[in-house]
Amino acid sequence: MSIYTIIDADTHVTETPDLWTSRAPAHMRDSVPRVITDSRGTHRWVLAGGRNLASAGMTATAGRGTFKNPPKTYEEMHPGAYDAKARLKYMDQMGIWAMVMYPNVGGFGAQQFLKLNDPELMLTCVQIYNDWQTEWASADSRRLIPITSIPFWDVAAAVTEVRRCAAIGHKGILFTGEPQYYGLPLLGDKHWSPLWEAAVELDLPISFHIGSGDMAEGLVKERVATYGKMAAFTELAVDIFLRNGLQLNDLLMSGVLARFPKIKFVSVESGIGWIPFVLEAMDYQFKGNSVAEEHPEFDRLPSEYFARNVYACYWFEQTAPRRLIDKIGVDNILFETDFPHPTSLYGDEVHARIKGGLSDCEESVRRKILWGNAQKLYKVTGPSADDEAKL
């Protein structure tokens, strides 16, 4: 029996301090994201002119800190946050064969690059990130799964970048679930058809990671001042889980899944407990409002489109895995740890949460959720006998 039992569908890599400054053309070097050490000795990501993005340690609290007290420097972080060999060692310890990787600095949908206000610079930063992620994954490209960040503000450039990265081993596409928030067309607009066509042709799933859209109601000063920082963060965390429900709601009514029956979408880091209600409510409204009469291209119910085209990831939940798998669909659920973020599962908690949620399931169900669904979606090559023998 293999010691590897998990394919982790959502993790993050803490970007190295010189990621952009060491790769950008000379005329852009002063404008790309960089790490500084502030007056408190904290490593921070900033843009030109000192515009703050985030504390570097905020993305790497697993085993080394909390949201309230994150690591101040890279040296204080778990080395697996930013070092690929250390990540593989941690994965071996946890029985995790592969990890799907998402960004931090550029935003969970690459939206932070919009702050650069220069299309050439924005595109360059996206390309540099994707190349760096490819290099990082080369430590073992079977096990470290890159997802392509895209310049979604330019659909032609986005398609070009998707094709470029697919050719060098990327296994998915990162996209915002709320393009309208950035002044762009809705998901259902034909504007996005070239992106959907490329995704289908290349057989790449499209990820809606939480936090890729409207974050305006997040950790605003008024809420922090009224509720306190940690209460405001707790509210924000749940708010962005549920916002993916709104994005799913939009996707199911957009017509995209009817026009592109082979396309795949993934709701990342959003949890799964809310899905049965959304699907039941959508089916009820869909039938009650005779949507198919208005749109004859809709040849099935929203829940049936979900079953055919959409996946969702869970990590901490205990109720949904025990009681709602059949309402969501065993073929549509992926497991994640979100390592090394503040809300991530780390160390012993990974297997404790799995056991608590899936202990009553048949082994075939456990296997699909922890391994099979992700292996098929991301075309993961499993371990060899030599890999097993090394441990």
Rank of each mutant, 00 (worst) to 15 (best):
V224W: 07
N289H: 15
A216Q: 13
G57V: 08
S138D: 11
G95Q: 03
P25W: 06
E235T: 10
G65D: 02
W192E: 04
G183R: 09
D331T: 10
S55E: 12
E235L: 14
R142N: 00
Q180F: 07
G273I: 09
V46Q: 11
A98H: 00
L242K: 11
N332R: 02
M28V: 01
N373Q: 03
E363H: 08
L252M: 05
D131Q: 12
V13P: 04
W196S: 06
Y305V: 01
L242E: 12
A292N: 12
E304T: 03
D239P: 10
F233I: 10
T42I: 11
E161S: 06
L301A: 02
H341R: 07
T176C: 05
Q180H: 13
C125S: 07
S55G: 13
L202T: 01
G172D: 06
I354A: 09
Y181G: 03
Q93K: 15
S290F: 13
A292M: 13
H295V: 11
R223L: 13
I6Q: 03
N130F: 00
R163F: 04
V380S: 00
E76Y: 01
N244G: 12
N130G: 03
E269K: 11
G107M: 07
L236S: 11
A307I: 01
S193E: 14
V310N: 02
G273H: 11
E135L: 08
Y284N: 14
K171E: 00
Y305G: 09
I354D: 00
N249L: 12
G273L: 08
G228D: 04
I240Y: 09
Y284T: 15
R367S: 15
A54S: 15
D338P: 10
Y82P: 04
L358I: 02
W132N: 03
M77W: 07
L391H: 12
P296Y: 10
